[in-house]
Simulated scan of single mutants.
Amino acid sequence: MMRLQGRTALVSGAGGPMGRTVAELFAREGASLILTDISGSRLDESVAAITPLLRAGARVTAQRADVTQAGEAAAVVAAGRAAIGHVDIVVNIVGGIKAKVLFEPMVTMTEQRWDATFALNTKGILHLTKLLAPIMVERQYGKIVNISSINFAGEMGNADYGAAKAAVASLTRTMAIEFAPHVNVNCIAPGTIRTSVLQRMPADELAFYAAKPLLKRLGEPADVANACLFLASDEASYITGEILAVSGGIWPAL
């Protein structure tokens, strides 16, 4: 039996490698999908890739948006619910670092970069949760999966990103407490995953991060997608408030 048959999942950041892979896997498992991304062209590509994977009776709808903006997040939810109906699952993929330079010492980091990184990694979760969690609580069913990072344990040159991802981990626990007992809220903490951000990384740094995990390789978007599927399914019905490291053996801990 397909694990998400009859469910509807909203996936933010669905135009990127990780979000698209999550959406593709969910489609194969029977879900209907509400997709959003800040890039309209990337979103169109995801819809084209996902549509042939949909199972009988499942549908996909998409709307370009910056979910860190409350109004745009609300428009996505309204359009998605109008097209498909209630939302059972939310996967908050949006996050990362917008700065051109990935690594910046804290003492030279601008306040603008700090604020931008926190907004990118936390505001989409805030807006979508405020819109959808009350409905999930009322319906007594819901699965929310947030994406943190093993960098929440602290990482040289990534003070902003590490702190923002620690905020995501903390938010996950608070959400799990506030929306219990009917909504499961969990968090994935990936290691270095082979996504578009790695294109900005020099070869020697890439080799360093590939050698760091116990499993001696970079993660793939599918590694994260498989964990998302488990946490979004009823197989994880007795799991909430947890942080699942998908990191090749690197253990994040403050």
Rank of each mutant, 00 (worst) to 15 (best):
L214H: 07
A27P: 05
A133H: 02
V91A: 10
T61N: 09
I93Q: 13
F152P: 00
F230W: 14
K212W: 02
A164W: 00
V185I: 15
E242N: 14
T110G: 09
F230G: 08
F26K: 05
N151A: 07
Q5R: 14
P202L: 11
I89T: 05
I89A: 02
L231W: 12
F26W: 05
L128W: 11
W114T: 00
N121I: 00
E104C: 10
P52R: 11
R139C: 09
R217Y: 14
S46K: 05
A159R: 08
Q63W: 01
V101P: 01
P221K: 00
E205R: 00
G142E: 08
T110I: 06
A75R: 08
V90F: 15
Q112H: 10
A23T: 07
P190G: 08
T195S: 03
K216N: 04
R59H: 11
A116D: 08
N92E: 03
M106Y: 14
F208Y: 09
D204G: 00
L229Q: 12
V67L: 03
I125Y: 00
I177V: 14
V60F: 13
A225P: 09
L244H: 14
A166Y: 01
L102E: 05
A74F: 06
K165L: 00
A23D: 04
N226A: 15
A225E: 11
M2W: 06
M109I: 08
P190S: 09
A14G: 04
V87G: 09
L54Y: 12
G6K: 10
D88H: 13
N184S: 10
G80L: 11
S196Q: 10
D204S: 02
R200M: 03
E111K: 04
A225D: 09
A23E: 04
P221G: 02
G248F: 04
E155G: 12
E235Y: 15
H127F: 08
I250E: 00
L120A: 12
H182R: 06
V183P: 10
A65R: 04
D160V: 01
G85C: 09
D37A: 08
G16Y: 05
V107A: 10
A74Q: 13
R139G: 07
